[in-house]
Write a protein that binds this DNA or RNA. Structure first.
Lengths: 234, 234
DNA sequence: AAAAAAACTTGATTTACGTCAAATTTTCTT
DNA sequence: AAGAAAATTTGACGTAAATCAAGTTTTTTT
């Protein structure tokens, strides 16, 4: 079951790699970095970088949770990825054609970042093969995450996408079928790529069908197998 | 105008980087590779790799054109990327969690590939910093391409997406507002992420409004500025 | 504790787009 | 060149999901 699940596409925006590349740096490199790194703290809700702004920095998420998204002309955002600690923001600026950020980033929770200029970062890639390998693995993972979301948001319909989100929360974040639902309907809607009203309707429906139980912001997935089925069928 | 355009999202699936990473290898490395590389030729339409199949190889596109796509349960495909020569298929398998291909690849045109096993490829990344840097830049570019398509296919509607495709053909492929339209309606539909009928209707409409001229498979964008406008507004 | 604001739910309506079906054109086969 | 097959166009219809609007509940402010 778990293997099957792993091989399927899902819209979960959160990666699983947890190893920091910083751990791969030598003592010497770390000392050299000391002067080049700026540690910055963001409060929940604060904007970390804006789509379209000149991009010359790489940011290492030390702690917290960051939303990576693209802004459209109307007020709605497309979430590309949600990053916990030990991830890197702005790698796509290492592609020479990118002089501006292609996305915005916002702190979902209080977040601590290490900011490094691209040039220094490039230097690390050149001098430390372990570091370079890790960066490649991270980029490859980001690619997989975004492709998976792309697939789900274009191919699955609302019920499947919402089931996806619930399973992601259960499996990846809380590691339990029962968990507190801190996210607002608006946030859920943004993650699942649908309107707030659709989220409300789907939750009502899922409750009616005894798929979930939701009381006092505590969600319980009552029928995991059916939920999984729904997420697969779309 | 051109700068504005460059900063906008578009659904063009084709990258622009043209430098091969192979050029960055030393004579010694190339000789070492000699025995490890298999050169394979694919004819137009042939499948290069299948989503879900075990992934232990990296493929360098030498020449030709390759479609990278995800398959859904029904017969329709989601195109992630279209790769001309000097690109690499399967980099996402360098992320340790990926043991199978997350996508399928098919030759759009006759295509020549160099196939390398992942282990050898990883070794090159470790020993040659220029090579590693180039691979990172490529991955970063792929990320940008896929994110851009993700945005367009979820946020823009059919007219905007189709205008996007025409502009991509004009700007990136033929570098002229007038070009031969070899692609069938079905292929255009797949690239723009819509039904064949929608493509037909949009073409008819664009002709009625004197936006384009299409005779004997020869397309001419008569009003570039309006086409650009349509592609932006969605 | 009352009032105000925000978040959520539910129903009615609209809409973009896909599907189905039939007609027409183009391309391929013999 | 004639006939068959495939591709394209066009209209009619259905539908998933967004939007609009009006309640209801929860949270925040005073």
């Amino acid at each position: 079951m778990t293997e099957v699940q792993a091989s399927m596409q899902h819209s979960c925006a959160i990666g699983q790699s947890s190893l920091s590349c910083m751990e791969l740096l030598s003592q010497q490199e770390l000392e050299l970095l000391q002067s080049k790194i700026a540690e910055v703290n963001y409060k929940k809700g604060e904007i970390i970088c804006k789509q379209g702004a000149p991009a010359s920095q790489i940011m290492l998420v030390r702690d917290g949770l960051v939303k990576i998204y693209m802004e459209n002309n109307s007020g709605e955002n497309l979430i590309l990825q949600i990053m916990p600690g030990m991830n890197i923001i702005g790698l796509s600026t290492l592609f020479e054609g990118n002089t501006v950020y292609q996305f915005s980033a916002q702190a979902y929770l209080d977040t601590k970042l290490d900011v490094i200029d691209s040039a220094t970062f490039r230097q690390l890639i050149r001098t430390n093969p372990d570091f370079a390998t890790k960066v490649i693995a991270l980029l490859a993972e980001y690619n997989t995450i975004i492709s998976g979301r792309f697939f789900c948001l274009t191919q699955k319909q609302t019920y499947g996408r919402f089931a996806d989100v619930l399973l992601c929360l259960a499996n990846r974040i809380y590691k339990s079928q029962k968990f507190p639902l801190h996210l607002s309907r608006k946030e859920l809607a943004e993650i699942a790529g649908m309107s707030v009203e659709s989220v409300a309707r789907i939750i009502t429906r899922f409750k009616e069908e005894n798929l979930i139980d939701l009381e006092c912001k505590h969600l319980n997935i009552l029928d995991y197998n059916r939920m999984f089925e729904i997420s697969q069928k779309g």
